[in-house]
Structures are given as C-alpha cells and as structure tokens.
Design a protein around this nucleic acid. Structure first.
Lengths: 147, 147
DNA sequence: TTCTTTGTGGGTAGCTGTGGGGAGTTACTC
DNA sequence: GAGTAACTCCCCACAGCTACCCACAAAGAA
C-alpha cells in the first residue's frame, strides 16, 4: 500500500527521486515497472505497471464504447511506461511535466494502489496548510469507519 | 485495548517514547508495526498496522467512489507506516508534526483500537482542566450503558 | 539500600534525497 | 555524411536526516 506525503524536488533535468519506502513497495509488487499518466486532478498519477494494466483492461471492456474512446484518449493517451534509474529516480517526460505544471518543489502522495505527484503549492492548498476545515459530509463518512 | 492518557514530551529530534503498556499491546497485536495519520480532530491518530489496513480496505471499497477519493486524500495521503526504534520510540515525520502543531509537551490517549496524540494544551482544553461539564446528551448515552 | 524499568537526551555512522559532470544515443540541420 | 543539439542514464559528491548506540535521572520493586 502506498501512503503518506513526501516533499521532494524535481531537478533541472526533470528527475524525481522516489522515496525509499515507495521504492521497496514498487520492487515487490511490479519489479519497479510503473506507468505515469494524468487523472481528473491537476496532478500526475503513478501506477505499478500491473495495476495500470488492470485499469486499461477495465476501460477496454466498458459497455459505453463512446466513453471508452474518450477515456482512452485522456488516460491511456498520455500514459508513459517507465522504470527507476540506478539512483532510484524517474525521469518525468516534458509533456507530462508541462501538463501538471511541475518544476521544483513537489509532493508525492500515496493513495493505496497508486501515488500522485502534485506541484507543491497546489498540494498545500488542498491537503496541507490550506486545508483549514474538513467538509462536514466528509467528517461524517470518516466517522462511519470503525476506528 | 489502548486506554488511559499519558503525558509525554516530543524531543528536539521529533521522537516520542511510547508508554510501556502501549508497547506491550503493539508487540502482541501487530509486531510493533503501526500507522500514524490525521483524523477529524486536531490531533494525530496512531493505529496498529493491521487495524489501519482494515480501514484502508474499507475506504478502498466504498460504493461512493467520489467520497473514497476524498478520504484517500485526507486519511491515506498523510498516513505514515512506522515502527518502534530499539528504545521504544517513534519518529514523527515533520509534516505530521506540523499538521497537529506538535512539539514539546503532548498527551497520548488510548482509544480502544487506536490511540491519539494531542498537543498538551488542546488536550487539556477538551479532556483535562477545560472539561467543566459533560453535555446532557452524552450523559444520557452514558446512562444507557449497562454498568 | 540496590536493582530494574521507563522516559529523556545526545553522539554518530549510514542511508537518502539532491546536484552536477560526463559518456552514449538519437534526432535534426546543413 | 558530418556536425550539432537535445536527451537519457550512468557515476560521484555532499548535506541532512534517520536510527542506532550509550548515558542518565526518576520512579517503583525487591
């Protein structure tokens, strides 16, 4: 499971060091093969390769063919398969970096099966200092969890 | 079961000594593997790893996918898996410490399946000296308990 | 008392994230 | 085809952090 947020920097060459704990998880679950793509949020989503395969299959088998085509264009169309270099970093392709306005400070946030890469400022706005109060509905949902 | 409140200090390095009684419980139930995250209250919540896994699964499998994504961002996104060091302490990651404004005096409060870490002052306000009277509804609920 | 347990503080070696040089490859221009 | 630019990926270096070790004081037990 991927969890936790990690403040990192994307260097001038567009490289991002994956945190050691994520590296371990990736090595176990997919031999460090992963896929970077976009999602509905203004960030990039990074999946273990096998997990992304499952999603691609799900899209491929949707009843609504029109929607399947649209999703293919958006999700699959920008997805890049990649792996870690010898230093445990990934190179973010310029197109993806541009799409999420990523350069310099960034936050990598675990999301169970995947992890998301946010520009530092957007992440803070939504999940960091900017998160002053949690929506009442969300708090309710939270409290339905037995914890 | 985790119960009771313990006044402790977080040292300059961000370490927190877990009370001996909690340590025993953790060793038994989850080989001292635990997860620290945020909850609806202005404190941190600490779960045995298996207990947190159950909650993560529950979120992962919610019908309402929108809500699942929101909860993942808030709960999973800040959750850090950790274990005790050889001295029985945990290192609180800076991001979590910052979120709950934790430094120096703190209170660790058992909550059956988990335990919560409060800044000393906030805890006192809510459960210590500051707790002048108990809400009538709460007293009623209390009285429905067979005791 | 003496010994043990427990919470706290600090030194230090090794790991991890970051930056930069440079070799090899590819793509493009002339 | 030759030259050049862009890019990728390797290596090395370094600073900061983590997690180990040791030490010590307070409290409780024998």
């Amino acid at each position: 499971m991927f969890s936790g947020s990690h403040q990192l920097t994307i260097d001038d060459k567009g490289r991002l060091a994956i945190p050691a704990c994520f590296r371990k998880e990736l090595a176990e679950c997919c031999a460090s093969q992963m896929v970077i793509t976009r999602g509905p949020n203004p960030c990039l989503e990074i999946y273990p390769a096998n997990e992304f395969q499952r999603i691609a299959d799900e899209i491929d088998q949707m009843e609504d063919r029109q929607m399947a085509e649209t999703l293919k264009g958006i999700v699959i169309g920008l997805a890049v398969q990649t792996e870690l270099d010898k230093q445990g970093r990934v190179l973010l392709p310029p197109l993806l970096r541009k799409h999420a306005r990523l350069n310099g400070a960034a936050v990598l946030m675990g999301q169970i099966r995947r992890f998301d890469l946010w520009p530092d400022d957007l992440w803070n706005e939504r999940y960091g200092d900017g998160l002053q109060s949690i929506d009442a509905q969300v708090v309710d949902a939270f409290r339905t969890l037995k914890r």
